[in-house]
C-alpha cells in the first residue's frame, strides 16, 4: 500500500491519500484527474470495479462521487499476504451543475451504477449510452435521494391525496 501511495503522489497532482487500515486506501482528488487515476490503478492490478456511489453534501453544495476498486488476489502475488485490498476514490462535483464524465470506457460494469445515480440524484453522465429509468416508476420533481427532497410532504401530496373507496362512493352519492 505504501509503495502505491508513493507512486500515486509522484505521478499525480491534486491527490490526498489516507490509509486508515492496512487493507484500505482512501484517495481524494479533483474531478479532472479521476479518469486518469482510475486507468492508472487498473494498470496497477486493481481491475475489479466494485461500486460507484454518491453522497449529497447539501451544506457544502456539492455531490461526492465514490468509486471502490479492489484487486483480484490470484493475479498479484504481492497482495496475497494480507487479504483483499480496497481503494476508495472520492471526488466532488458542484450541486448546481450536476454533470460528470462516464467511466464506461475504463470499467464497463459502471453502466447500471451510473444509471441509478442519474435516476436517484439527477447527475448527468456525459457519454453514457442510455440514461433511461432503471428502478423508479414515477417522475419526481426533485430526484428522491437528494437531501432537499421532503419525503413526508411527498407522501402527503401523492399517496395521502388518493381517497379511499368509501370516500369515492360518498362523493359520487353527493353528486347524484
Amino acid at each position: 500500500m505504501n509503495e502505491l501511495k508513493k507512486k500515486l503522489l509522484s505521478s499525480f497532482d491534486n491527490v490526498e491519500i489516507n490509509i486508515p487500515e492496512d487493507n484500505r486506501m482512501i484517495v481524494i482528488t479533483k474531478k479532472e484527474s479521476v479518469l486518469s487515476i482510475l486507468s492508472y490503478l487498473k494498470k496497477m492490478g486493481y481491475n475489479h470495479f466494485a461500486l460507484e456511489s454518491c453522497n449529497d453534501w447539501i451544506d457544502d453544495n456539492e455531490f461526492e462521487l465514490i468509486y471502490i476498486l479492489s484487486a483480484y488476489l490470484e493475479k498479484d502475488e504481492q497482495y496475497q499476504d494480507k487479504g483483499k485490498r480496497n481503494i476508495i476514490l472520492k471526488t466532488r462535483i458542484s450541486r448546481e451543475k450536476a454533470k460528470f464524465i462516464t467511466i464506461i470506457d475504463i470499467f464497463e460494469n459502471a453502466e447500471p451504477y451510473e444509471r441509478e445515480i442519474h435516476e436517484m440524484f439527477g447527475i448527468y453522465f456525459e457519454g453514457h449510452p442510455r440514461l433511461t429509468p432503471l428502478l423508479l416508476e414515477r417522475d419526481y420533481d426533485i430526484p428522491p435521494f437528494r437531501k432537499d427532497f421532503d419525503t413526508n410532504k411527498y407522501v402527503e401530496n401523492t399517496f395521502g391525496k388518493i381517497p379511499s373507496i368509501k370516500e369515492r362512493k360518498k362523493e359520487k352519492n353527493e353528486r347524484t
Partner: peptide, 17 residues
C-alpha cells in the same frame, strides 16, 4: 398503512385503495 415505510418515496401507504 405503510408500516416502517410510512414516509418512503415509493412505497404506497394503504393497499386497499
Amino acid at each position: 398503512n405503510g408500516g416502517m415505510y410510512y414516509d418512503s418515496y415509493n412505497t404506497i401507504t394503504s393497499l386497499d385503495k
